[in-house]
Design a binder for these strands. Structure first.
Lengths: 149, 149
DNA sequence: CCACTTTCCCCCACTTTTCGCCACTAACTA
DNA sequence: TAGTTAGTGGCGAAAAGTGGGGGAAAGTGG
């Protein structure tokens, strides 16, 4: 399980050095193979390949005639890029994805269980502050209201 | 599985250079034989020939009395063009299809699992921005709300 | 059926991107 | 304080994307 928040810098070519603590697990479970895609909140999602493949299977089975399903498929599948840890434990973030998530230099890598999120550092801070300030603005969901943690 | 977004340029003759990473898979599974057709969203669809053939079989079996089915058939079947990777890994996009999808110079090739979509770059960006901004405007679909990814 | 025009495709050259490699610095450990 | 490991940066070779010239093939009109 991936946890925690890691402030990092991209180098001049848009490469991200995966923190050392995650490298061995990634090599063990996915042979260093990863998939990057985008998220609606303008950050990137980083999956170990096997995890992504299971997500992908779900996506492919969605209807091709329903507009919402087609859109979601297009977003996630369409932006998914395979990449691999290089010899120094880095991955190259493809330019179109970097652009989408506004990643230039300072970024944060956020562990999210079976995947990571990659945010522009400023955007991450802003998002968090806004959430804390703004309180509850999301839709309701029964499972949510039943949560104890 | 084809994934990812690839910004490309058509050359002066309307040819599209398929990114190198997809070439070998296409040669292996389809001997470089491809089928181009159009999509409702004013982009083109690019299938490996065997995949297209299975789509085609499904289409042919659709009702000939239902108007929506007839329309879908006409669109997809009627615009389908066979083409092949040339020696440099490029395909020629027939002029009528190029025109339909407004493809001139800058385009994006979007992997969608078993096929690709080819968009005018600007149209693609506009579509994506509208989707992200507008939020959920499609029909609802129970499977969608149950998705965790 | 022949000549002319247009389209298509092979080939080569140029430019940009990608990626392995190595080196430097900062932080942590012993 | 010295040794080790992690993060960062940059060089350079190799690969991929882009563009154009010219010959072959196909389509068109007389």
């Amino acid at each position: 399980m991936f946890r925690g928040i890691n402030p990092l810098s991209l180098d001049g070519k848009g490469r991200l050095a995966v923190p050392a603590k995650y490298r061995q697990p990634l090599l063990d479970t996915a042979d260093g193979q990863l998939v990057l895609t985008i998220d609606r909140d303008r950050c990137l999602l980083l999956y170990p390949l096997p995890v992504w493949e299971s997500v992908e299977r779900q996506l492919i089975q969605l209807s091709s005639t329903n507009a919402r399903a087609r859109a979601l498929k297009r977003l996630l599948l369409g932006h998914a890029e395979e990449c691999a840890l290089d010899a120094s434990g880095r991955i190259l973030l493809p330019a179109p994805l970097r652009e989408f998530a506004n990643l230039e230099k300072r970024v944060v890598l956020v562990g999210q269980g079976n995947k990571f999120e990659i945010w522009n550092e400023q955007a991450w801070n802003d998002w968090r502050e806004a959430l804390l300030r703004g309180g509850d603005d999301g839709e309701s969901l029964p499972e949510l209201d039943a949560l104890a943690f």
